[in-house]
């Protein structure tokens, strides 16, 4: 196991370096000069040249990358052109909001997906199976931002039950970039902030949960059906176990293995989906930061966010691999 883990970790390092090169090249070489793009089409050649000089853009790409990589290892990702704050601090202040949103969405999505998938798989071809299959199809087919807008229309505009933007009501004086605002305020007994931040979290989390719920439901259903056809399930039934015991004790555990992979991989996808969801709900996380930075051509910030999310994605993949091999020892020796 230790050897396998080491092997996997060693593979992740060159992938991370490769990703940083891809992101760097994408932002520094494709489609024109960043200095020109920042200053706009009407800027004169002299100011463009001055900004190029200032940003070190006239040095060879390899030198620029080496410089950037050296900084990145020390946690220095440059400065935002807009706010002049360091990219690291910009990203770190907004990251907790994204984590809270992504975890809430994953929790909702996985719970709905698992329950729907298990019931649909056990009661195959029932009315429930058809409705949940249809629901999953819709879940993977509708655009995330439109799902968010529909939820806003229904629960925010028509019913007026829930707030439609932000993370907490600014009048309550709570820090909108605080980590785990909902849980934290509950732990501190600040029930006004707890209730308000929970209400703010519901719609974005539901929006972001749509896709993973659909994927997990599909995956769990398929895994359940495959497992329920196995011989040891027949043996368990022949022993006279009740159907619910057969499902609980024998089927679930084995059906769970492919689901773990999906959950892990979807969590990475969620970080990407957060860009859209955070924009819809003005959620103050890294996704909104990236979307705003892209429109403002603040490429240092974009680079920082993309690298951070890619790094998390790679680490998550690594964790999924390790959990997977722990659940199913056959994988290690393959």
């Amino acid at each position: 196991m230790a050897r396998y883990m080491l092997q996997r970790i060693l593979i992740a390092i060159p992938v991370l370096i490769g990703v940083s090169i891809v992101v760097f090249l994408m932002l520094h070489s494709a489609g024109g000069d960043p200095a020109q793009q920042i200053l706009g089409p009407r800027a004169d050649a002299e100011s463009v040249a001055r900004l190029q000089e200032e940003m070190g853009l006239n040095r060879p790409l390899a030198v620029q990358y080496a410089d950037f990589a050296k900084g990145a290892i020390q946690g220095d990702l440059g400065r935002s052109y807009r706010s002049n704050a360091t990219v690291t601090s910009e990203v770190l202040t907004r990251f907790p909001a994204t984590i809270e949103l992504a975890l809430a969405a994953m929790l909702i999505g996985t719970t709905i997906g698992l329950i729907a998938g298990i019931i649909a798989g056990v009661r195959r071809d029932s009315f429930f199976d058809y409705s949940s299959t249809l629901g999953a199809l819709i879940g993977i087919s509708i655009p995330t931002f439109w799902l968010g807008m529909i939820l806003i229309i229904v629960f925010g505009v028509e019913l007026r039950w829930l707030p439609i933007s932000g993370r907490v009501n600014p009048r309550l004086g709570a820090d909108p970039s605080a980590p785990f605002l909902v849980i934290n305020s509950a732990l501190h007994g600040n029930w006004t902030v707890f209730r308000d931040s929970l209400e703010h979290l519901i719609l974005p989390a539901l929006t972001l949960a749509g896709w993973p719920a659909a994927i997990v439901a599909r995956m769990t259903r398929a895994a359940m059906i495959e497992t329920m056809d196995r011989e040891y399930i027949r043996t368990a039934r022949a022993k006279g176990l009740t159907e619910s015991l057969v499902v609980k004790r024998h089927a679930l555990r084995n059906a769970f293995i492919p689901v773990v992979t999906v959950v892990g991989l979807e969590l990475g996808g969620l970080l990407g989906g957060a860009v859209v969801t955070e924009t819809v709900f003005s959620w103050p996380g890294v996704g909104k930061l990236a979307a705003d930075a892209i429109l403002a051509r603040d490429y240092q910030v974009v680079q920082g966010v993309v690298l951070l999310l890619a790094a998390i994605f790679i680490v998550l993949n690594l964790l999924v691999d390790l959990i997977y091999s722990w659940l199913d020892p056959r994988i290690r020796y393959a």
Binding site: V15, G18, V23, A30, V275, A291, I294, L309
Partner: peptide
């Protein structure tokens, strides 16, 4: 294939918006 796998290591939507923004 290693080059291809690198593209998979970046969340799709993020890769797409970065590229689209950079291309104009």
């Amino acid at each position: 294939m290693a080059l291809i796998d690198l593209l998979l290591a970046i969340p799709a939507i993020l890769l797409a918006i970065t590229l689209a923004a950079r291309l104009g």
